[in-house]
Each structure stands twice: as structure tokens, then as C-alpha cells.
Design a protein around this nucleic acid. Structure first.
Lengths: 352, 352
DNA sequence: ATCACTGCTGGGAGCGCTCCCACGCGCTCT
DNA sequence: AGAGCGCGTGGGAGCGCTCCCAGCAGTGAT
């Protein structure tokens, strides 16, 4: 890491200086730095030697200016920093993104857009094209963020499409399959009166989980009973409320599939208060395989999403996109971006 | 957020275009953008109007190249991402940094340097001067990172000096005062045989806590008893081991001041196993005021560090530094950077 | 021997900004 | 009336790269 001072006191060496040292032209050095194949081996070696001797490091600002790219992507989190840290979801996602970026020159920017002020700033940021691409995680259905990004013509990948015809590239876990396997598992345990507490149904993924639940019932030839389905909202309180309603309406239910672990935790409280034992009287399955699931009493069977893997795939997709869509322009209207779906996995524990 | 296309298809407007629109020169627009005072009000208004009309956003890359600054600082975390998320310390710190940056144009980069590979990358990053300054948090005493940063002549602020004569600017909480007030509190409760489990004594802050403990004893005229001091290492296991040793050596001790909440948790286990009740037989005080302290049984009295505030102050200090140290050069040898110390606060709970 | 044609190479022309020098104007002070 | 000053201003000269075109050899076909 030798950094020799030269020329204008203390400045780092420039391409020009490396070129002079190696006895070649500026263009050639640039080609070597950027790994162009059309450089002879001898020349390449000479340049590499000069680079090493001078401790040359490319000036990113100059490169960004000349090439009109930044070599950076942003992970946009439409939440407060507090929630970001509270949710293991983000942590896992970040790990996946980091892994995908590990052997790249790409720089990751973490941008919170929890309040209006931050969103305003983000808008400025994107307008200035300070990143080559954007990773959008856990966006709400009515969020204008994705459309803004699309409008600006910035490559983007979203985690969890907002609807069946999401125009942006997306990576999702198989919510339908998850709901289906959770329900099928309960059926395989001999349960027949399986209740379901949904998530917020304006969230596409939650809707899919519920559809998966229905599919499993249909496949097993069990008649659907609308009385066994109660809307929730992912929250603990919602779980309690829904469970109470279900118990009142169908006291003979023998299993519950909740759309999130937190919801399941709420349901468990009500079940316990009602004197139902888990899993003997009522089997319980959650979703997310969060820390709550592991620490619940009894430990909760839950559907695990490959969040880290999602982060990795999202990043790969985005990198590909930024690489191909070189001259920055808007995606032609009507062109659907790839929708990737990753498998979920049922983690069996004592609650079922 | 009107972004009108112009000139070379779709490119954003440039300074030049804004200047033409406002009927002024490039220089004048630049001055307005950068808030230079030497622009007449009329001209300023005209330029601002043009900026608004065109939806002009400065090109950061060009600015960085021309001005040789990046308007970005890095928060360097010498830990894995996993630990980063696990520790509320970082979350609070980040909040403080964010707050200080909120009404700045500065961009925050979060850089993990948990393993060799990441550190290598960081070195490249810093060598390329891609940030104007660096915030260094929770660096270990033998970490080469701070010296590398200093060597490169990059302004830096460190959280927690590594020794009494830390050459870098630093912001710390008052570890001495914290240890002193925790001990004084125990004395005020009528305790006289107060034991102390230290932190890792190669960590300057831990050392200061222990010195604070001693000061309090001296001030109260209580004779120091080396048998009451046992080295720990911030860990739970260390707390258990130390507590066992203390109990064996001084079975009549009536209070324990542990250098961290985690250590206190370890100590509590041993005390309980030994049949000592808290706080009746033995009063216990921890350090950090972490979640553990609140959830312990009984809730643990602990010393709170103003971590968010530390983040804020560190950032302010760094911004000041980057602003003044305009032409990038090394800090002259021998020039000590400011050492700021923020007060701690004793949070009383049922354990004492 | 002439003419492509291919494989490497050098260097001009910018990218959009900041910095700074020089200029013009309206004053005040001789 | 002329010199001197300061304020506001315009625009040249880069910052360190990438892109691209032209040029130069060497090769095989005509």
C-alpha cells in the first residue's frame, strides 16, 4: 500500500503518471485497469508493474463523471432506522446483498426513507443519479417509491411484487407454496377443521399465502369453510382479535395457520386463555420462522423464507440489469421485468 | 420534481444550461448553488427560478472531481454485520450520526470491516479518498485501522480513545465518572464491602471505570481492598467466574459493581446459586443500561452511556474537521485532536 | 505488389463542475 | 477630473477519467 507523493504535493498518482512510467499511452492504462482483452500480455504486465509501484488507485469521481456511472447501488429501506434494526428481516437481507456484492467493485449504500424528509432526500438523491441501481425492500402496496424509480429510468429490483403484474423486476419467496405446505402439513397431521388468520390482504404476499391455504384444502378434498378464515394484519393484537372471533364462531377448530409468527403469538395467548392446549387440542403454524417462533412455548412450527438468498438474487438481478442497460434510458412501456420466486421451507416444531 | 429532457437526449440539465436560462454566467450559478454570499439578490432569484424550472440537480461526480471532495463520510464498523445488528450500541450510534447529518448535504456510508477481506477493501476505499472523513467506532486497542486512517491523512473521529494520549480526535463517555457514581451510589446505600468485576483492562474505557470505582472508595474514606477486585472480560462467563472467585475470597461482600450488564448477569447467576438474595444480601450494579438490565430479575441498576449523543457529537466534530482541513494533508505530528467526554447517568432499578 | 483486414496502440475530446483571474461598474477620496 | 477601491460578474483552465477514432504494423488474399 505504498502511496508515493508526486507532482502537485501529495496528490495521488493519476492515469497519466502510470502511463508515463509504463511507457505507454493513457488509453492503454485505462484498458488494463478495466480489464479490456485487447491489450498484449507484455504491455499489460508493464502497466500492472507501474500501477503497483506507484500505488495507483483510480479516482472514482473522475470515472463516474466520464463514464456516467457510479459503481454504487442503493438498498432503500422505507422504514425508520429503529425498525430496520428491530427486524431480522433486514439484517438477513443485507447479508445476502453483501454476499452478492463481495467480489464486485460495487459499493452498497444503505438509505432509509422512513419519513417524508428522508423520502424527499432520497428523491433528490435518485434524481441526481448517484446510484446505478436500486434495491427496494418491503414496500407497501400504495408506496409511490417504485413508480418514481421507474420514472427516473433507474434499474430497480423489488422484493415482493406489489401485485400479480408488477412492472419492476422482483424477487419473492413462494408465498403460495408456503401457505400450501403449512396447511398440507396440518392436514397430514390429521387435522380437518383448519382455521386461517390472514395477513394484511392489501399485501400481495399475504394474499398468496391465503390462496395457498385454500389450494391445500382443495387438494385434500376438504370443503372450504369461510367461517374458518379471519382477516388479521400481521400484528399480535390482530392475532388475538382474530383468534377470539374464530373460537367464538367455530369452537371445534383443531388447527390454526397464521400468516405470521407474531400473529401466531397473539393467537396462542387467546387459545391458552380458552384452555386449549397446543398442539393437543389445537395445532398452530406460523410464518417467517422468526426468533419468536423458536422461543415460543411450545416452539412454533413455521414457514421459513430464504431471505438471505432473496437478497443475493435481487442483487445479481440488479447487477445484470445495470450492466446491460448501459445507456440510461427508460424501460420501454409494456416490457415486463423478470419475476423470480424462491422456495420456502416448513420448519417443524412442537406446536403442530 | 420536473425533469425535462434537453440537449443530448434525456440528459439532466447542467450548470451551463441553467446559466443560459437565467441569463448569467456559469460561475454565478455555481455561486448560487453553493450559497456564496457575493451574489446580488436579483441575480440569485433569477438563478433559483431557472434551477426550479429545469429541475436542476448538481452532478456529484463532477463536483467531487473539480473540488476534490466527496461530501460523504463513512461509519466504519470493525465487526461483522451480524454483530452490528445484534448490538443496540450500533443502532443508537447510527441514529445519532443520522441526526447530525440530517440537515447536511453529507452522505453516510456504512462500511463493515469484520474480516480481512473487508478490511482490505476498506483500505482500497480509503486510499482512493472516496470519503471526506471517517467515524471509527468500537475499535480494539491493537487495531491498525486508526493508524492507517491517520497515515492517509483522512480526518477521523474515534469513539472511545485507545489510551490516555489518543492522537485522533475522540468522543467518549465519562467512564471514570460512571464507575465512580455507580460505586458512590452503593456506598450511599450503606454498603461498605463493595466488590468490582472489571472489564478487559486492555480497553481504556474499562480501565477508567475501575479507576472511577477506586476514586469513589477513596472519597468515602473506605479502605481499598484488592481482594474485592477481580478481573472480568465483559462476558457473561467472565462474570460467573469472577463472582465465584470473589465469593470464595470475600464471602462477606455486600455489593458488586460489574463493568458491564452482561458481566452482571453472569454474576447474578452465581450469587443466586450461592443463595444470596439481590438486593438484600448483595446489591448489584451493571454498566451500559442495555436491554438485559431492564429485563433482569430483579431489574438491574446500571450506568447509561449517551451513545446516540456520542454519535451526534462525533459527527459534528468530523464535519468541522473536514471543513477546516480543506487542502488534504496530514495532521502535523504532535498536534493532539480534541478529546470530548460526555456525561454518563446512573439508572436506578431494584438490584441496589 | 496491392489491397483489405485484424490486433494493439496513442491521444484528442469531452464529462459537469469548481476555482480563480480579470473585467466593468459605481463609488469615494483626493 | 483622475485614481483607487470593492462588489458582482463572466468565462478560461483544469480535475482524472472514458470513449472513440485514427494510425501503425503485420498478415493473408488477390
Amino acid at each position: 500500500m505504498a502511496v508515493h507523493g508526486r507532482g502537485r504535493g501529495g496528490g495521488r498518482p493519476t492515469l497519466e503518471e502510470v502511463a508515463a512510467r509504463a511507457g505507454v499511452g493513457r488509453g492503454t492504462v485505462s484498458r488494463v485497469i478495466n480489464g479490456s482483452p485487447s491489450v498484449s500480455d507484455a504491455t499489460r504486465a508493464a502497466v500492472e508493474a507501474a500501477v503497483a509501484e506507484l500505488g495507483y488507485v483510480p479516482n472514482t469521481a473522475a470515472r463516474a463523471l466520464a463514464a456516467n456511472r457510479t459503481d454504487a447501488i442503493a438498498l432503500v429501506v422505507p422504514e425508520s432506522e429503529t425498525r430496520f434494526f428491530a427486524e431480522p428481516y433486514f439484517s438477513e437481507m443485507l447479508r445476502g446483498v453483501g454476499a452478492a456484492l463481495a467480489d464486485t467493485e460495487m459499493q452498497l449504500l444503505l438509505i432509509f426513507a422512513g419519513n417524508d424528509r428522508e423520502r424527499q432526500r432520497l428523491a433528490q438523491y435518485l434524481a441526481a443519479h448517484r446510484v446505478d441501481g436500486v434495491l427496494l425492500v418491503s414496500v407497501h402496496a400504495d408506496d409511490p417509491l417504485p413508480d418514481m424509480v421507474a420514472e427516473l429510468g433507474i434499474p430497480a429490483v423489488i422484493s415482493g411484487p406489489r401485485s400479480a403484474d408488477e412492472p419492476l423486476a422482483s424477487v419473492d419467496s413462494d408465498n403460495h407454496g408456503g401457505g400450501r405446505s403449512a396447511t398440507a402439513h396440518l392436514i397430514a397431521q390429521g387435522r380437518r377443521r383448519i382455521a386461517h388468520i390472514t395477513g394484511r390482504l392489501d399485501v400481495w404476499g399475504a394474499l398468496r399465502r391465503t390462496e395457498g391455504y385454500r389450494s391445500a384444502l382443495v387438494e385434500a378434498g376438504i370443503e372450504e369453510d369461510e367461517g374458518l378464515v379471519e382477516p388479521g394484519d400481521f400484528s399480535e393484537e390482530g392475532g388475538r382479535r382474530a383468534m377470539a372471533a374464530l373460537l367464538e364462531r367455530r369452537p371445534d377448530l383443531d388447527a390454526v395457520f397464521a400468516a405470521s409468527d407474531v400473529t401466531a403469538a397473539g393467537a396462542r395467548q387467546v387459545l391458552r386463555e380458552a384452555g386449549r392446549s397446543i398442539p393437543d387440542d389445537v395445532a398452530l403454524v406460523g410464518y417467517d420462522d422468526s426468533a419468536i417462533a423458536r422461543h415460543m412455548d411450545p416452539p412454533l412450527t413455521s414457514v421459513r423464507q430464504p431471505i438471505t438468498e432473496m437478497g443475493r438474487v435481487m442483487t445479481d438481478l440488479l447487477l445484470e440489469e445495470t450492466a446491460t442497460r448501459e445507456p440510461r434510458r427508460r424501460t420501454p412501456a409494456g416490457v415486463r421485468r423478470p419475476q423470480t420466486v424462491l422456495p420456502t421451507q416448513l420448519v417443524r416444531r412442537q406446536s403442530s
